[in-house]
């Protein structure tokens, strides 16, 4: 069953068309990543899904409900972590969570929410003294208070250190494992690749690529890069290459196989392939391909 449905959605601000008729859906219990550069329309889409604004065209449904006209009903079952939202700087973490529990119908116990977000040790710290990453954790704790069925995360790990990021990924995975549907925006492509079951890449308000994460990655070409040995022309290589600075780059569906072919060719001539690097395809390759294709 579909938890989030976006159908030919449009939104404009004056002359600027932020979202130009996009459609996608997210089944229950899946993690869906919305990717794109700054200004691509990710946050606008999320705010339309949150019901903060009315679409200019098309529709959004969350758990079958219209988030604008059925906001109260949608809110009881969703958690929202905005990219930017304010706290009361003079309250402590504990006071902040307590106040927010007051606004929630069946809230998690305070300490459970803090533990989930990894803030257990910061309960008595004032919000103004938290680091950027810790504020993101508090954002997450508040978004999880109502045990939401659907969770919207706008750049959830921005400003977090690597440890905190891994912790947050773990929480997100566990929530999805328990059946929570999660829509996240991020410009950390690795984050999307590691977490999401499916994704859509937005560019200038349109979806330029979309699909299941595994299938998308399988359809991409990996790369083998190395420095061309002195005195060898690219035409002599067994596989076609392009150049990225002084690195020769060979794109291949199976980069391991391509690397073997190149290495045995080099061994036959007594050459070394210095700086050899073999990489399976990543979302970043897709992303760069898309932004390099004249967009």
């Amino acid at each position: 069953m579909t938890a989030i449905l976006v159908n030919t959605l449009r939104k404009r601000y004056g002359a600027f068309e932020a979202v130009k008729g996009i459609s996608f859906k997210v089944p229950h219990g899946q993690i869906f990543a919305l990717l794109g550069r700054n200004g691509a329309g990710k946050t606008t889409t999320l705010e339309l899904l949150a019901g903060f604004q009315r679409p200019d065209g098309g529709s959004v449904r969350v758990l079958g409900l219209d988030p604008v006209s059925d906001r109260a009903a949608v809110r009881r079952r969703t958690g929202i972590m905005l990219q930017e939202a304010g706290f009361f700087p003079d309250l402590t973490v504990r006071q902040t969570v307590d106040i927010w529990r007051d606004f929630t119908s069946a809230p998690r116990p305070r300490d459970e929410a803090l533990e989930l977000a990894g803030l257990g040790g910061k309960a008595t710290t004032r919000v103004r003294q938290l680091s950027g990453g810790e504020k993101r954790r508090l954002d997450l704790a508040l978004a999880l208070l109502g045990r939401p069925d659907v969770l919207f995360l706008d750049e959830p790990t921005a400003g977090m250190d690597p440890r905190a990021r891994l912790d947050t990924w773990q929480v997100v995975r566990e929530l999805a494992g328990q059946g929570t549907t999660i829509l996240l925006t991020t410009h950390y492509l690795e984050e999307a690749q590691r977490l999401a079951h499916a994704m859509a890449i937005l560019d200038e308000g349109e979806i330029v690529a979309a699909g299941g994460m595994a299938e998308t990655l399988a359809g991409l070409r990996g790369r083998v890069a190395f420095r061309l040995p002195a005195g060898v022309g690219p035409g002599e290589l067994p596989l076609p290459v392009t150049f990225d600075g002084e690195l020769a780059v060979c794109r291949a569906g199976d980069p391991d196989l391509a690397a073997q072919a190149l290495l045995s060719w080099a061994a036959g001539r007594g050459l070394r392939l210095a700086g050899l690097e073999v990489r399976t395809a990543t979302l970043e390759d897709l992303f760069l391909d898309l932004s390099g294709s004249g967009r």
Binding site: A50, F52, A72, R75, R76, I80, L82, E84, A85, G86, F87, F88, W100, F103, T104, S105, L142, A143, G146
Partner: peptide, 11 residues
Amino acid sequence: QLVLKRLRTTE
């Protein structure tokens, strides 16, 4: 301070 906005994410 975007506190009103955050309040709007609640019920």
